[in-house]
Design a protein around this nucleic acid. Structure first.
Lengths: 178, 178
DNA sequence: CTGCATCTACCTATCAGTTGGTAGGTATTG
DNA sequence: CAATACCTACCAACTGATAGGTAGATGCAG
């Protein structure tokens, strides 16, 4: 793993824990064992780092999406939920884009563009899946599921109660997958 | 309006815009026209301020919830959605508890307790409404609606597109209100 | 009604610590 | 020789928080 990747790894962990504003170059430097000036060598400014962070996150997510078999609707939806479920570690992290999205108003625009793209990618994947299986209101339902999963993560994280996320996920997909 | 209320008002505006971490006592002091040391007079520490903030927000929200007529299901759900819709001002603010919830992992525990209570209050109100109207899976559906609205706000805010929120809200309540 | 005490709501001044970012140096590699 | 990947040292700005001061209102004993 290159130093650049190690920095991104550490940054993702921190942002998903405490938010973008509360993550500092010095924290990252300590995490990966170099000095903060050297972090600036790899990512000149904080917006640069933020953009790289979301871009990488979205790419990794996309790869996992592409691995999901879309033949069985219910199984595909379960696998989709599974990706979000994996992102939720109580007291440790939620989806990177849930954090970035909540902070969006105060964030650099290049970061917001990437976060928006992440949501759009998820919505598009779902919409295709639902359309392919003849589900009505595919576009709206896709938006609903993405929103419910992101929101469910936030509520569950605040309440330190995984069951809330699972309940929300189940309720969101039950109606379309029956 | 007392100075304490003016501070809370300014703080709410800032947190809902840029997040709790990015709001400073000096910003608030400037907003209300006093010095930062005087803000500390009213709210000794930042966690104190955060707790007061969420508590006040939840109280105001509760008052509005209590004003909603629960006789007609669809009308009541629309009114509920309306409260969230009002909280979403693109490029300016989202629900205070969406921000606090997304930042939860790095926030003082007394703040998280209040945020959790806000979500629970909303879920309880919805669950009562749904149960009263004979809706199945009232508890899970209540959680779904709250999560979808909070998540929908975040996605819409990131995309600067109100229609996403409206679509999510409509999709969330359509199934139960038909 | 007077006079002293206390309280409220601010103030100035200051603190140590952290922040993003830069200038300029150095050792290693191709 | 020059690019890569670090380093030390520094900067101005900002952070939450504290100490200690003050003007004005309120309370209350003589």
């Amino acid at each position: 793993m290159t130093m650049k990747e190690k920095i991104l790894e550490a940054a993702e962990k921190r942002v998903r824990g405490v938010g973008f504003a509360e993550m500092s170059f010095r924290d990252l430097a300590r995490d990966v064992g170099i000095k903060s000036a050297s972090v600036h060598y790899h990512f000149p400014t904080k917006p640069d780092l933020g953009e790289a962070l979301v871009t990488r996150y979205a790419e990794q997510f996309k790869e996992e999406l592409e691995r999901i078999d879309q033949i069985e609707l219910r199984a595909a939806l379960d696998a989709f939920v599974g990706l979000y479920s994996k992102a939720l570690v109580l007291g440790e992290s939620i989806c990177l884009c849930a954090v970035m999205g909540a902070e969006a108003i105060g964030l650099p625009e290049n970061v917001n563009v990437r976060t928006k793209a992440f949501f759009e990618m998820n919505k598009a994947w779902l919409e295709t899946l639902l359309t392919e299986h003849g589900v009505e209101h595919a576009a709206e339902t896709a938006n609903l599921i993405v929103a419910a999963l992101e929101g469910g993560m936030i509520v569950a994280s605040t309440s330190k109660n995984r069951a809330i996320f699972e309940q929300v996920a189940e309720a969101a997909i039950r109606r379309v997958a029956n």
